[in-house]
Design a protein around this nucleic acid. Structure first.
Lengths: 185, 185
DNA sequence: GGCCTCATGTAATCGGTTACATGATTAG
DNA sequence: CTAATCATGTAACCGATTACATGAGGCC
């Protein structure tokens, strides 16, 4: 069995992280699939990419799950649109996600940056809180890794932990820089 | 010196990276599937994990691809074994892989560490070369990222590059530390 | 008697990727 | 006239994960 959740941030049922991008996009305004895809391409392609087909697939799945709803809009001279909006359940899940630090260092690159992307549009208070929370997670992880490194039985194991520690440390420094920038602004 | 070729390390057809672990395990001695899995569990679980079923599945696939061969060994009082060895094609592919730096920073965590694991058992010359090569890749990447960061059109874009740069820098430092350790030894 | 180890797999499931299908409109 | 844009999807494929199947032997 998995030793009970080491991470203080329980992962409310595993969800495809890409779903949060969609939730985030819809959080400010309703969108139909085609526009949603454009938005993801333009604003998030550096952080995350998902194909056109998958955008539609995810929207359907999320609707089945009750996270979004759609209204059909007929247009003359153009195909119909299905305009999606957040359902209350979706909004709740997004709000929870966006303020919660990621549990693993490797998730900073995509998921944490996405959180910042969405929080950056709102008030800076929640952004600061997220960053502090993430710093906490990093420090916890570093503490645990240092322990394990001390107890390591092989050079390779030590090396692995050294690698991870160095990555975590860099994350921490980057987070501090980010924190400063926000406070100055 | 600075080959502009972004892919100075062409990825000879995309292969499931886990296959290299199997090739690496078989490089020193033949193994049957059950033992192979045990080995991966014990020696590599920190770096990489694959399930028992997948170990068998990969072995079959790799045999179809001509990378490994097997001989059936009958035992009394125990089920038959299929003992796998590297075919020449497999050995060639492994030798190529193990000395080639990874192309992306995010691949250090798993793939590069695996390379070190296997190279660590051999002469330190090739290990040193791998490390130097990886340093080169890192520096190239950092140069390109710095350029793009300069040309970035949004704060979020700059932030993303800063994050990646900080990770790459940490990798570089870690590699230097590793280099020193090897030369001292 | 019941459970773990040895040893190999197959089957079911789930989800991501790629290709394909449709069909009108507008820009060059 | 041709290509791209708008707008939605389905179908086929591929691979990873999980569960299940088998069956002898040894250990408590």
């Amino acid at each position: 069995m998995n030793s009970q959740n080491l991470n203080s941030y329980p992962a409310e049922r595993d969800r495809n992280p890409a779903e949060y991008l969609i939730l985030g996009a819809l959080a400010t305004r309703p969108l139909h699939g085609y526009d949603l895809y454009q938005y993801l391409e333009q604003d998030l392609s550096l952080i995350w990419t998902l194909g056109r087909s998958q955008t539609y697939a995810l929207l359907s799945r999320m609707e089945r799950a009750g996270l979004v709803t759609h209204k059909r809009q007929t247009q003359e001279k153009r195909p119909d649109r299905k305009t999606f909006s957040l359902a209350p359940a979706g909004r709740k899940i997004f709000n929870q996600w966006v303020k919660t630090p990621v549990a693993h260092i490797r998730d900073l690159r995509l998921e944490f940056l996405a959180k910042i992307h969405f929080l950056g549009k709102g008030d800076s208070k929640s952004l600061e809180k997220l960053i502090e929370g993430q710093q906490g997670v990093c420090r916890e992880k570093m503490g645990r890794m240092a322990e394990r490194k001390g107890a390591a039985s092989s050079g390779m194991e030590r090396l692995t932990y050294e690698y991870r520690l160095s990555q975590a440390e860099a994350v921490l420094k980057w987070l501090e820089g980010l924190q400063k920038k926000i406070k100055e602004k």
